[in-house]
Amino acid sequence: MNREELTKRLKKIIEPYVQNKEAFENVTEETDMLQDLKVNSAHLVDIILDMEEEFDIEIDDDTAEKMLTVGEALDATERLLKEKA
């Protein structure tokens, strides 16, 4: 799966939890899910759980704690998918 496809699927996961819809329209890899998209911090856990289900991966605590931006979430997913393959 390439980065573009991964980004599309991740955006679909994040969207229901976004409160700042305008920021979501202009999302980049640097976009911070809590500060920019105003995702409620408890919903960051829901995003992690949705990612685990969508990509059939397990995101451990050490990985989760560094997943604050869209790019960091993509990096983690790419790495975990490679490890799984």
Partner: peptide, 10 residues
């Protein structure tokens, strides 16, 4: 199961 996994994360 969703609740169980959620609680395990936090």
């Amino acid at each position: 199961d969703r609740l169980r996994r959620f609680r395990q994360k936090i």
